[in-house]
Design a binder for these strands. Structure first.
Length: 927
RNA sequence: GCCUAGGUGGUGGAACUGGUAGACACGCAGGACUUAAAAUCCUGUUCCCGUUAAGGGAGUGCGGGUUCGAUUCCCGCCCUAGGUACCA
C-alpha cells in the first residue's frame, strides 16, 4: 500500500475525537506541564498558513511532554469579543454572536485538519456568559479592593473602611487619586453614604474618574494607550484625539514596581522584556517645588538630575498646565494665548513628527529657585508633555540638550555646573566632574551631591526623592456593544456593584449596534434595561483585554459554576509553563495578564506571582506574492501578452499580482492562469526555457495581494503531517519568514521514505524481528538524542533535518527491524502524529496508545564513535586525518603522535610546542 | 536618536559551551529505470586558479584585535528587521 495521507489522516483525527485521546486527566499523580497558545480572535477570514506556526510548535512540545510522562494541559479557546464582529454587525445588522459562532466553527474545522492534540472539552469563549460571568466577578473584586503600600498588595476595601472607622485617613499609605481627603475617624463616620462612596472610589483598583482619554471618533470609543500606534488607532488607523471623559480605569500603576521586578524572574525573550520595561518606564529622581510667592503656590517638577539644580536658568510648563492662566502677566497675554492656540491645533501626529522646531512663550512671571531663592523665568513650551511627571520641568541648559537648544533660541542663560563640562556647542550631561557654581555642593562628586541635595530639599520642605513611571492607569471602558457588560449600576451618580448572585449580567439585546441619538453607547438602546427596574446600568462595556487577562485559569477548571476555577485545580496547575504567541501583545495582553494575576494572588485566589514562566514569540509568516508581467503597448495600455520574469526587461511591462495558488516553484500554471480572471482567458505568453517564471516579493499576507495560502489547500495536496513538518522546517520558530512552498516536496518525500521503511518493494507491510546491527542502533540513538535536545531548546527546524538524515541512513542500511522502527515511530510522533499512529497500529500496537508511549531512552554505548580518525591541523592549518585507538589516555596519545610517521614528516625536524586537546580529541599541533 | 535582534552559497537554513564552515532541504546540471511521463534512485553543485585530475588560494556584511585556531569573543563602522520616541 502506498502512503495515502488523505484517508489515513482523516481516520486518525476521527479516532482521536471519538476516543477523546487528548482529554487531560484530572488525576494528579503525574507531574504537570501546562502548554498554552495565545487564543485567537476568530476573524471572518479564517486561518492562513501563518497562524498555525505557533500552534504546531506548542503541539509538538505538548506531545513530547506526554511521551516524557507528564500530565499535559494543552487547551484552546477563542477571544471572541471584539471590534470586527461588531463592525460587521453595524453593516449587516447580524448579531455579533451569530457571526462569531460561524467563524469559530470554521477555525475549529481548520485546526482539526492539522491534527492538534488539544483537549477540546476545556474550550473557552470569552463571549460566553458562563465565561464572562467570571470576568465580571474579577471586575467586582477589583472594584472592591484597594492597594496598600505597607503590605505592598491589594486588599479588600473592607480593611480600608475599618481603618477609616478606627483612625481616619491618618497613617494610610495607599495607591490612590491625588485629591484624597484627610479626615479623622469621627469625621469619616459623620460623612453621609454618598460622600463616603465618593471618597472610597479614589482608592478602588477599578475606579471611575474624569480623565484624559484617547478618543477615536471613527470607532466611537476610547482606546487604551497600547491600542494607539503613532497617533492613530491600531485597528483601522483612524485619528485619535485627547478628550476628558468620565471613565473606568484600572490602577495598574500600583503594580508598576512588581511588574518590573517580576521581569527578572521569568524566561521571556529579551526584546519583549525590554519592551515591557520601557513601557513601565521607571525613572528614579526627585520631585522639586519652585515656589511662586505671588500666587501663594509652587510649581512642582520631576527631575532625574537633582544634582544639576544650580544649573536651572528657567522653568518650563506644558501649555496645558493648570497654572498657566494664573501665571501669565497682562503684557504676555497675547503671546501666550497665541502659542496655546497654535499648539492645541497641532495633532498628536504633527507634534510627534516635529521635534526639531523650537517654540515656546514667556509667561512674564518668575518662580523662586528652591535653594538659592533667585528668580527664574517661567516659560511654556510644547516639548514639555502634560501627561508625564507633573507637566513641568526645571530647565538645565548646560546638562540637557532640549533645554540647551531652547535657551540658545530664546537667549536664556546657560550655567555650567561641572568642571568637566564642555558646553561650547551642545549640552553635556556627564556626571564625572566636581560641581562648580553650585553653592554648598561645589567640589562634590555626583554620588555625594545627590543625597546632600535631597536632604536639603526635605529640610526646606521643597522636594523629596521620587520614583516616576511612564505607565498610566489603564482605561477600562469601551463605548461599544460587543463586550462584557460592567456589573455596575448608578445611584445618585455613584457606581455600585450588583449582587454576586446576580452574575452574569447578560449583554442585552439592542435594535442597532450604534450609539444612541443622545450619544450614549449602544447599550443605551436596550429596552427596559434597568437594575431593580430603576437604576441605570453602566452603559460602556469592558475592553478587549478583559477576557484574555485571566483565561489560562479557566482552562484549569472550565465548567466550574461556583468559582473561576477550583482551588484544587489552581493549586495543581499553578502557572503556564510554556506560552507561545506573537510579540504584538507585549504591552497589552501580556502586561494586563500579569497585572490581574498578581491581583488574584494578593487576594489569595492563587499563589503564583507570574502567570507565564516561559514565553516564546513565534515569528510572523509573511506572504510571498507572485507577479506576472503584462506587456504594454506604445500608448502604455495593457495587452494580453505576458512575459516571463527573466525576459521582462526586453519589454515595457507592468507587474500584476497573480494568485500564488496557481504558481509552483515560481512557475506559472498557464491553464489555471487563463481561468484566474476572465480577461486573461486569451492570454499569450513569452516563455523562457518553455516555462513562465513569475517574479516574487515578500509582503504581508492579504487577500488583495493574492498571496494568502490556506492550510486546508496544503493539507489537501500533501497532508497535515507534511504541513506540520514543513512549517517547522521553514526556519527558526522565533524568526519572521515568508511563506513559500518551494521546499515542501522534500518534506513530503521524507514521509514517503518513512513509509517505505515499513514496506517491501511490492508495498506490503514488512517488518523483521531480527536483532538490529550496531549501525542501525547508532542511527536510531543519534535521532533520539538529537530530537530530545532540539525540542528542549525549541529548535524544531533542526530536528526535521535530523529525521531526514536518520531515515536516509536507515534506508541505506535497508533496515526494517522492529526494534528500531518502533522507537523511531515514537520519536517522530510529536512532529507527524498521523502517519506514526498508522505505523504504530501496523506494528501491532493498540490504537491510540502511541500518544502516551514512553519516549525512548538513549543508550550511550552505541553512540560511541566507531572511527577514530581525527582531523589534525598544524598551527591551525588542516593537514590530515590521524587514526588512533580511542582508549588511550592523553599522555599515551601525545607519545603516539610524536612517534607517528606522518607527524614526523610534517614536523620536518621542528619541535612540537603544544598539542591541543578538545574533549579528548587532538585538534591542533602547534609547532 | 535610543533599545533589541540579526547579516553565512542561486534559495530556506545548519554549525549547541571558540575546534574540519556550508549539515539537511530546495533549485540547478548530468545520469539510471521507462515507449513516454510521473514516481524512484545515483552523481555533482561556495567562489577563483588548475583542460580532466592531483593540488593550491580566498571565503560567514566591512575594518581591526585576542587566540595555536574566530560564523562564534572584544573594539570601531555599514546595512536590515522589530520596538520606542521631546519621558525631564
Amino acid at each position: 500500500m502506498e502512503y495515502n495521507h488523505k484517508s489515513l489522516e482523516k481516520k486518525w483525527q476521527k479516532f482521536w475525537a471519538d476516543h477523546q485521546t487528548y482529554k487531560t486527566s484530572d488525576t494528579h499523580q503525574k507531574p504537570k506541564y501546562y502548554v498554552l497558545d495565545m487564543f485567537p480572535y476568530p476573524s471572518g477570514a479564517g486561518l492562513h498558513v501563518g497562524h498555525p506556526l505557533g500552534y504546531i510548535a506548542s503541539d509538538i512540545f505538548s506531545r513530547y511532554k506526554r511521551l516524557k510522562g507528564f500530565n499535559v494541559l494543552h487547551p484552546m479557546g477563542y477571544d471572541s469579543f471584539g471590534l470586527p464582529a461588531e463592525q460587521y454587525a453595524i453593516q449587516t445588522g447580524q448579531h455579533p454572536a451569530v457571526t462569531t459562532e460561524v467563524n469559530i466553527n470554521r477555525y475549529r474545522e481548520q485546526m482539526d485538519n492539522i491534527g492538534f492534540s488539544y483537549d477540546w472539552s476545556r474550550e473557552v469563549r470569552t463571549s460566553d456568559p458562563s465565561y464572562y460571568k467570571w470576568t465580571q466577578w474579577i471586575f467586582m473584586r477589583l472594584f472592591d479592593s484597594w492597594y496598600n503600600k505597607e503590605s505592598d498588595k491589594a486588599e479588600p476595601i473592607e480593611t480600608l473602611i475599618a481603618r477609616f472607622v478606627a483612625s481616619g485617613s491618618t497613617g494610610i499609605s495607599a495607591v490612590s487619586d491625588e485629591d484624597v481627603l484627610e479626615f479623622s475617624a469621627d469625621e469619616w463616620k459623620s460623612l453621609d453614604e454618598e460622600k463616603q462612596q465618593r471618597e472610597l472610589l479614589k482608592y478602588r483598583i477599578a475606579y471611575l474618574r474624569e480623565s484624559t482619554v484617547n478618543w477615536c471618533a471613527a470607532l466611537g470609543t476610547v482606546l487604551a494607550n497600547d491600542e494607539v500606534i503613532n497617533g492613530v488607532s491600531e485597528r483601522g488607523g483612524y485619528p485619535v484625539e485627547q478628550k476628558k471623559m468620565m471613565q473606568w480605569s484600572m490602577r495598574i500603576t500600583a503594580y508598576a514596581d512588581r511588574l518590573l521586578k517580576g521581569l527578572d524572574t521569568i524566561d521571556w525573550p529579551e526584546p519583549l522584556v525590554e519592551m515591557q520595561r520601557n513601557w513601565i518606564g521607571k525613572s528614579v529622581g526627585a520631585s522639586v517645588k519652585f515656589p511662586v510667592p505671588q500666587l501663594n503656590t509652587a510649581i512642582e517638577v520631576f527631575t532625574t538630575r537633582v544634582d544639576t539644580i544650580y544649573g536651572v536658568s528657567f522653568v518650563v510648563l506644558a501649555p496645558e498646565h493648570e497654572l498657566v492662566a494664573a501665571l501669565t502677566t497682562p503684557e504676555q497675554q497675547t503671546e501666550v494665548d497665541a502659542y496655546i492656540e497654535k499648539t492645541s491645533k497641532k495633532s498628536e501626529l504633527d507634534r510627534m513628527a516635529d521635534t526639531k522646531t523650537v517654540s515656546g512663550a514667556f509667561t512674564g512671571s518668575y518662580a523662586k529657585h528652591p535653594i538659592s531663592g533667585q528668580d527664574v523665568q517661567i516659560w511654556i513650551a510644547d516639548y514639555v508633555l502634560a501627561g508625564y511627571g507633573t507637566g513641568a520641568v526645571m530647565a538645565v541648559p548646560s546638562g540637557d540638550q532640549r533645554d540647551y537648544v531652547f535657551a540658545k533660541h530664546f537667549t536664556l542663560p546657560i550655567i555650567p555646573i561641572s568642571d568637566t563640562q564642555n558646553i561650547e556647542e551642545v549640552a553635556d550631561p556627564n556626571k564625572d566632574g566636581k560641581y562648580i557654581n553650585s553653592d554648598f555642593i561645589n567640589g562634590m562628586t555626583y554620588q555625594e551631591a545627590v543625597p546632600a541635595l535631597i536632604a536639603k530639599l526635605e529640610e526646606l520642605k521643597l522636594g523629596k526623592a521620587k520614583i516616576n513611571f511612564r505607565m498610566r492607569d489603564a482605561i477600562f471602558g469601551r463605548q461599544r456593544y460587543w463586550g462584557e457588560p460592567v456589573p455596575v449600576y448608578f445611584k445618585n451618580g455613584l457606581p455600585y456593584l450588583i449582587k454576586e448572585e446576580e452574575l452574569p449580567l447578560l449583554l442585552p439585546e439592542v435594535d442597532k449596534y450604534l450609539p444612541t441619538e443622545s450619544g450614549e453607547p449602544p447599550l443605551g438602546r436596550a429596552k427596559d434595561w434597568k437594575y431593580e427596574d430603576q437604576y441605570e446600568y453602566e452603559l460602556s462595556t469592558m475592553p478587549g483585554w478583559a477576557g484574555s487577562s485571566w483565561y489560562w485559569f479557566r482552562y484549569m477548571d472550565p465548567k466550574n459554576e461556583g468559582n473561576f476555577a477550583s482551588k484544587e485545580a489552581v493549586d495543581y496547575w499553578k502557572a503556564v509553563d510554556l506560552y507561545i504567541g506573537g510579540s504584538e501583545h507585549a504591552t497589552g495582553h501580556l502586561l494586563y495578564s500579569r497585572f490581574w494575576n498578581k491581583f488574584l494572588k494578593d487576594l489569595g485566589y492563587q499563589n503564583e506571582e507570574e502567570p507565564f514562566r516561559k514565553l516564546i514569540n513565534q515569528g510572523m509568516i509573511q506572504g510571498r506574492s507572485n507577479f506576472v508581467y503584462r506587456v504594454l503597448d506604445d500608448e502604455g495600455r495593457g495587452t494580453n501578452q505576458f512575459v516571463s520574469y527573466g525576459l521582462k526587461n526586453e519589454y515595457k511591462t507592468i507587474p500584476l499580482h497573480v494568485d500564488v495558488n496557481i504558481v509552483h516553484n515560481d512557475v506559472l500554471d498557464l491553464e489555471k492562469f487563463k481561468n484566474f480572471r476572465p480577461d486573461f482567458a486569451n492570454a499569450e505568453f513569452v516563455l523562457e526555457n518553455g516555462k513562465y517564471i513569475c517574479g516574487s516579493e515578500v509582503e504581508k499576507m492579504s487577500k488583495s495581494k493574492f498571496n494568502v495560502v490556506n492550510p486546508d489547500d496544503i493539507i489537501e495536496s500533501y497532508g497535515a503531517d507534511t504541513l506540520r513538518l514543513y512549517e517547522m522546517f521553514l526556519g527558526p520558530l522565533e524568526q519572521a519568514k515568508p511563506w513559500n512552498t518551494n521546499g515542501i516536496e522534500g518534506v513530503y518525500k521524507f514521509l514517503r521514505k518513512v513509509w517505505r521503511l515499513f514496506h517491501d518493494a511490492e508495498g506490503n507491510f514488512s517488518v523483521s524481528n531480527e536483532d538490529p546491527s550496531k549501525a542501525e542502533f547508532k542511527a536510531l540513538h543519534k535521532i533520539i538524542k538529537k530530537v530530545e535536545d532540539d525540542i528542549e531548546r525549541f529548535s524544531f527546524n533542526t530536528s526535521v533535518s535530523a529525521f531526514m538524515i536518520c531515515v536516509n541512513e536507515l534506508t541505506e542500511l535497508k533496515c526494517n527491524k522492529r526494534q528500531i522502527l518502533e522507537q523511531l515511530v515514537i520519536v517522530l510522533q510529536p512532529y507527524a502524529p498521523h502517519i506514526t499512529e498508522e505505523l504504530w497500529a501496523l506494528l501491532g500496537n493498540d490504537a491510540g496508545t502511541l500518544s502516551y508511549a514512553s519516549y525512548p531512552v538513549f543508550k550511550a554505548e552505541y553512540l560511541v564513535e566507531s572511527e577514530f580518525a581525527y582531523p589534525v591541523s598544524f598551527n591551525g592549518k588542516m593537514k590530515f586525518n590521524l587514526s588512533l585507538p580511542l582508549d588511550l589516555d592523553q599522555k599515551a596519545v601525545e607519545d603516539t603522535i610524536r612517534a607517528h610517521t606522518d607527524v614526523q614528516r610534517h614536523l620536518d625536524g621542528k619541535a612540537i610546542k603544544k598539542i591541543i586537546f578538545v574533549k579528548g580529541k587532538i585538534i591542533n599541533i602547534v609547532i
